[in-house]
Simulated scan of single mutants.
Amino acid sequence: MVEKIAIRKKRSVNIPNSRELGLLGFIIILSILIQIRNPRFLTVENINDLLKNTAILSILAVGMMLVIVTRGIDLSIGATLALSGMITALTVSTYPNIHPLFALLLGTIIGMICGSVVGLLISKANILPIIASLGMMNVYRGLTYMVSGGSWVSADQMPASFKNIATSSIFGVNTLVFIAIIIYLVFFYFISYTRTGRQIYAVGSNPDAAKISGIKISKILLMVYTIMGALAGLTGVLWVSKFASAQGDTATGYELTVIAACVLGGVNIAGGAGKISGVILGSLLLGILNNALPMINVSPFWQQAIQGLIILAAVIVNVLVTKRIELGNLIRREI
């Protein structure tokens, strides 16, 4: 009997890894099937395009993972992205000699301010995350239209140095992909090997116990929403550089895609659980679907339906896995 319980314990511990391996296996099988339908899918050129198109999503998914782990949600990131992208685009069009690094810094600071406002509403005013972020989403979207006067900033108004941010390379790697890799490495270290990173998970797992243990929950919440805003601001600049266009409705609804990437990657929507590796795989899967479905001539309407079914399946699997983990924890306590 003891041996059976030990086996169950071991299985419960390995469940998160099994989930990620299962997602990786699904991505491999899906890629093979798509390659059979269209031999151009796994070409170097298409893979490069896929990675570049997925980079922005994956950067945002890192921040959203931290927010969801603390039992929160941020619906304002699409509007934050649009606002930071618009202000940066207007700045570089007025001052074309500005260095691209300054443009990236400007967008990041704007996003950081936006994220900190949402964080203050949640951590200090005790407003529910979904309400606070939904309200600020409309505020930021309105500000985007106000600063632009309702007009666009087109490619011919932007200097070449700014548009080259998305097309240039660093050490032979596209700049978008390179930035995404750096961000993943930094946050992997942050959540895995720092005290603050562990406190983020503690807040999401059991807020009452975290408070009793001396963790300042309000500071943790303010920090994660500020980080989310900073990443949204950074991606706003990358987005505008990539598409060479800044519009008032940029990234409308994109926050749902980011949340979907996190859920697909195994981030528990109830908080307390999530891994960087899972978020990478979730973002990659969505990127593959967006890239591959048009290549195999799937109708745009069916594309949305297929993505919705896959997300729903991921949520169901996540619930089942969570129940098994809780059962494993219960068995360990009984021992």
Rank of each mutant, 00 (worst) to 15 (best):
I32Q: 04
I68W: 03
D74G: 01
G135I: 05
L327W: 12
D156A: 14
Q303I: 14
R198C: 00
K216P: 00
I191A: 14
R332Y: 03
F162R: 08
G248S: 10
V203G: 02
F41A: 04
S192R: 15
N38W: 10
F102L: 09
S18M: 15
A82D: 06
L66E: 02
V224E: 02
A166Y: 00
G236K: 03
T250F: 05
L285N: 05
M228R: 05
W152D: 15
N297H: 10
G308P: 06
F26V: 04
D156I: 13
N97D: 04
V267Y: 08
V317K: 01
K216E: 00
G328E: 07
T144N: 01
I165M: 01
W302S: 10
S151Y: 15
L234F: 07
I227N: 07
M228G: 12
K10N: 13
V186W: 09
M1K: 12
G253I: 10
N290Q: 09
N38F: 04
V62R: 08
I181R: 09
C114L: 07
R333K: 14
K211S: 05
G265Y: 13
T91E: 04
P39D: 12
V117L: 13
K219Q: 03
G135C: 00
L143M: 15
N48P: 00
V237Q: 05
N318M: 08
F171N: 06
E326I: 11
G282I: 06
M137E: 02
V44G: 12
S241C: 03
L284P: 12
V92P: 00
S123A: 15
A314T: 02
M136S: 05
V240R: 10
V67Y: 11
G278L: 07
I15G: 06
G282N: 06
E334A: 14
L90P: 03
S213I: 10
G328N: 11
E326F: 13
Y189H: 15
I269C: 02
I98P: 02
R332I: 07
L256S: 08
M137P: 00
F171V: 05
L185I: 14
T80P: 02
W152V: 11
I113C: 10
